[in-house]
Amino acid sequence: MIALRRLLETEWGGLALIFGLGGGAAGLLSASFFTEFNIYVMLRSGCVGILVAFAQMIVLAVGQMNLAVGALGGLVAVLFGAMLEVLDLPLPVAIALALLIGVAGGLFNGVLTAGTGIGSFIVTLASGSMFTGINVGISQSKPFHGIPAEFVAFGDARWSFMPALLWPSLIVAPLLAIFLYRLTPGRRLLAVGGNAHAAELSGISPGAMVILAHAISGGLAGLAAVLAVAQLGAAQPEIGATWLLISFAGPIIGGASLNGGRISILGAMFAVLVIALIENLLVIVMVDPYWVQFTLGALLLTTVGLNQWRATHAARA
């Protein structure tokens, strides 16, 4: 009982519980839920989302937002496709360059925000439109299909119900945790998010931390884009177009503060998985596909509400 209570007091505990109970309920509802393949499909649908959520979360941590996460992802995806198909670069080189492009896009956002004092909302709203513009200009809205077969196979690979695509998230999550909780730059980044003025008075440069957060965000969006290409088997220009919702929903449901300085890595992960579970359930119980979007939004509100309720009650208890 005490263990359960402890679990519920953490940001991610409630979500983990919802994920578990929801899964159990789904299993009762439908025999096809607990098949190895369905679990794999569900987890695989969350792999890109987890990284997208992380990309937003790191910017939320410093007290800003990044509306260009999806647009940057789309740009990285088509450039990655072009590098493989048109330039015929070896796969590891293309992946490294793709991540670097992501970091560069993030740096662009960060330097503009820190340097001009224009809010990150406007900067990333505008830069997002620019990224999408470059994406469309290069791809002419057509996907690049020349993706190496072994990379596409990686996108489909699984070990029992564990998709290979989940590995990058499972590696990134602890790295992020070490960065934010055990390394000085990470602590400074969170400090700036918590109270930028106080951090500055302590001799920490808020601008540098803002740039760092955006650069990491860009890198993570790039990684998410590369995985999305593996998942879809083609570098489609539409990649990233639907990331905005999940990018905020993941960290916020997971317990991050929109005011900055507070995030939960496990919370964001479980939040994305809960959303993946919900989407999966909607398919299983055959909700009219036209209403999936609505149902998802309503469920997001419910989840955030429940989590808020949990947080206030945990604080009181």
């Binding site: 969170l190 400090a191 918590g194 109270n195 106080a198 302590s202």
Partner: peptide, 21 residues
């Protein structure tokens, strides 16, 4: 300074040594 300048959700100790952890 006159106004309070601490980082919320950081421990007391970390606030004291913030810029030189």
């Amino acid at each position: 300074h006159q106004e309070r300048n601490l980082i919320p959700h950081f421990s007391v100790g970390e606030n004291i040594l913030l810029e030189r952890l």
